[in-house]
């Protein structure tokens, strides 16, 4: 190695700064989809918030803790856990459940397998709080008088407590007992926009 002169040191420092700035700039560009992109945001998600697997820490902690591996999705019994694609901001690569498509059956395998502790292990399925199911009485066929459906009640794993039925099988959700698994939303027969939906309370950031 050449002996360091003061001039040489200054030049090296300058070179290092330039280097750092260049790398920073490249990383900045590469990072755009992970910071500001909202590509995966859909009207549904914006409204209901993003539904995380059972046992997920509060959103801010969850995002910090999750290492974006796919273990929970691989462990999932129903295949309901999806990974958000690049373009989803800080949520890129994090697990999400779209209950209208496939809902969580509370097998809790994901919490057992999570390597980061972002999904709290050892929870009983009664203690899970993924969100709250909310019935839209204008859309629900049993409420608006176009049917006597009852699908959500059949699907609810805590039927009788979390979800009860009234006249023409019209559902009522009891938030105290509702775990927000989304099984009701999965089976809801209102196709385009479910009449019962799980609101996770996790704003899309």
């Amino acid at each position: 190695m050449k002996p360091l002169t003061r001039r040489g040191f200054g030049a090296a420092l300058a070179r290092g700064a330039v280097r750092l700035a260049g790398i920073g700039a490249v990383l900045h560009v590469l990072g755009i989809p992970f910071r500001s992109g909202k590509a995966a945001t859909t009207p549904e998600l914006r409204e209901t918030g993003v539904l995380r697997p059972p046992g997920a820490l509060p959103e801010e902690d969850f995002l910090a803790r999750c290492i974006r591996c796919e273990l929970c999705a691989d462990a999932c019994d129903t295949g309901c856990i999806r990974l958000l694609p690049p373009g989803s901001g800080r949520s890129t690569g994090t697990p999400v459940i779209f209950p209208w498509d496939r809902a969580c059956n509370l097998c809790m395998a994901c919490t057992e397998v999570c390597p980061s502790g972002a999904l709290k292990p050892g929870l009983d399925k009664h203690e899970v709080r993924m969100g709250d199911a909310v019935v839209d009485e204008r859309l629900c066929v049993s409420h608006n008088g176009t049917g006597a459906c009852g699908a959500c009640h059949t699907a609810c794993p805590f039927r009788g407590r979390a979800l009860t039925q009234g006249i023409r099988n019209a559902p009522t959700v009891h938030p105290d007992s509702c775990v927000g698994c989304g099984l009701c939303e999965e089976v809801c027969i209102v196709e385009d926009r479910r009449a019962i939906r799980v609101f996770s309370g996790r704003a899309w950031t």
Binding site: G31, F34, R68, L83
Partner: peptide, 24 residues
């Protein structure tokens, strides 16, 4: 920033997610 940026840049991690998404 609380952003796990390297996880988004680290090719083996990316490949894992890509294969997972692709197969799924």
């Amino acid at each position: 920033f609380g952003l796990p940026f390297l996880g988004y840049l680290y090719p083996p991690a990316l490949l894992g997610r890509e294969i997972h998404n692709g197969v799924t």
